[in-house]
Design a protein around this nucleic acid. Structure first.
Lengths: 193, 193, 193, 193
DNA sequence: TTTTAACCGAGACGGTACGTCTTGTCTTATA
DNA sequence: TATAAGACAAGACGTACCGTCTCGGTTAAAA
């Protein structure tokens, strides 16, 4: 017999409205400028409904990020069989995000969120490649003999992702060919001879 | 701040007290938790004295950073003649900062500050190596034939600094030998054959 | 043939639990501090069950009062044949209520309820004598020649009840003999010569 | 509140604006309906400016009452030499207040405030006669041989004031001649033979 | 020598946002 | 279909800071 309880269930409508509003306000005003009151307003929701399910601003942003309400899903790493090309394409799509009017603001807002909330930090790293997507791609590179088996996957991943973060923080335009040079510098020494 | 006289010239005493208080509160409470009111209190200073000389929290933090009230000066890159060893040592000193109780908090506070203020972003990048110290060292590496003349200095620098940032944001412990692996991965392909 | 209808009927158990809880919370926390959620909790009842039968906090308190869940029933006016003694005894029992630890809180809570709800106001007046118990007793005093037929019953009643209210609001201790002096002052001029 | 300069001394302008707003809102919405947020809005003042100087809603109302921002000053007891006439006139002015559209609301709001704040209770009693104005008038009545020296002043006062409170709470219209009957009933037995 | 102008610590001001609490309505599942 | 449980939108509560503006006092340079 299944244990049941009486009572209403969580409103998916409210949840979605809150995450959507958070995503929009995040890119409009940044992390510091994002207010719970503003989210409640924008979502047409009582503040208590937010606090019932998320304990803090950063928890809200973390889930938002995880569910793809902030960074679009197409930051997946392509897989064409050419490792260098795939990594370069992935970096390019991120650098392009930085070049867009609001793209850099969103990314910096996420960095700020990550800086004061461990959960967001971990999520951001996963989403931007660390620990999962990029590392997986590199692992398959080993399988296909594009990389040597002893390649330092973690360090390569962090070097790539970190470079994106640095660009976001320093607000400097990305020079043409940067993706290519970066991938080559980081990968080449791990390629089979 | 000790009891003293006021006067129509800028009080160095007040300035120092403010920067010191900012540094302390930055590591205690992080960037978001840092308040102008708290700085004024801690420094024994009127709020207007802060606003008279700094336009915002981030301007204050930026100067604090520039003057070495936050990150100690000894993050200079060593120069022993062995490029790899120098870079590894420099990375190690940063990773060690991250391992210290408050070191990671300070660095994350700085990242948050950089994320919402362009000036802090630039300063942080300079201080952590980008654009100056690390790049200069690499350039001297070229002079001494430790690197090929066409080495992508900017990309190498950003990969190195970015990896540190990523570690700070993800709160993951640094594996032994990480500095070495990272330096090798990033440098090797640019070393003369 | 008796008319029947389908479905459950109002739960007397719930009704009683609600009124009991209201009475207890009223004396614990006062009228302002009384919350519908608290009543539901204390009574083990859904909030809707309260709102289904009572339109507001004051309606709930009004019924509570009417049904004797707040002020005990023994505030009836005694009838020994001695009008002055009866009124004095009745006043004394009220002044004694005021002297008890929670008695004054309850009475003030009721006054607050009366102040913002007309229904509670009327009920309180009835219960404390106005319009019924005290006036009835006075009327019988006329019948028994303890009062002149033209005695201003309404005014006498209000003077007596009002004095109790004033004491409750001013939180001043009642001086010994106050009941007696008050009754005498208010009654004497209406006694037969 | 008009646009002006602030400074490190308490702004009389702000204080007055707050008390005025409180008085107006008190009669518009009653004590329960009076909100600190509403007062701040109406007075053109930050909420903190209210909380800096008054600890609670009731403290605010208490001062409002004391300073005559709620009940007008002309509730002084007249003094024509004729005690009965003076008391009757005073009662009439209060009953007339009750008959006015907002008069009863204000008085009930004050009663509610008094019910949950001791300070307001004491102030209200003073203002409506208890302990000072009415009792003083009665004392002068003794001096002028209108009352016997042993007249129970406190009880007479409370009977008179209490009758007004009862009327306010019960929302019943005052019958013509009520003031006169009440004064006579309460006074007569204390008049010299 | 006297202004006078800018500094100082302190802190009140009008505000915004916080996170909690309560209200009264609505929804779900149980009995 | 009445119930207990409880999610919901709304909005008041009292607190913490924001950045601006005086206040009264000090002190160095200009008149």
């Amino acid at each position: 017999m299944t244990q049941h309880r009486a009572g209403p269930v969580r409103s998916e409508e409210a949840r979605t409205a809150i995450l959507t509003a958070t995503g929009r306000l995040m890119s409009d005003r940044g992390y510091e400028g994002l207010t719970m009151e503003g989210v409640a307003q924008e979502a047409g929701v009582g503040k208590q409904t937010i606090y019932r399910w998320w304990s803090s601003k950063s928890a809200l942003v973390a889930e938002c990020l995880l569910e793809g309400f902030i960074l679009p899903d197409h930051f997946a790493v392509p897989e064409t069989g050419d490792l260098r090309a795939d990594l370069t394409a992935w970096l390019d799509s991120l650098f392009q995000l930085l070049a867009e009017p609001r793209g850099d603001a969103i990314l910096r807002a996420l960095i700020a969120a990550a800086a004061d909330d461990a959960e967001v930090g971990r999520r951001l790293r996963e989403r931007l490649g660390g620990g999962s997507v990029i590392e997986d791609r590199l692992r398959r590179g080993i399988d296909e003999d594009d990389l040597r088996p002893d390649a330092p996957l973690t360090e390569i991943t962090e070097a790539l992702v970190g470079a994106v973060i640095i660009r976001a923080l320093s607000r400097e335009a990305v020079a043409p060919g940067a993706s290519d040079r970066l991938v080559r510098a980081v990968i080449e020494s791990s390629e089979p001879t």
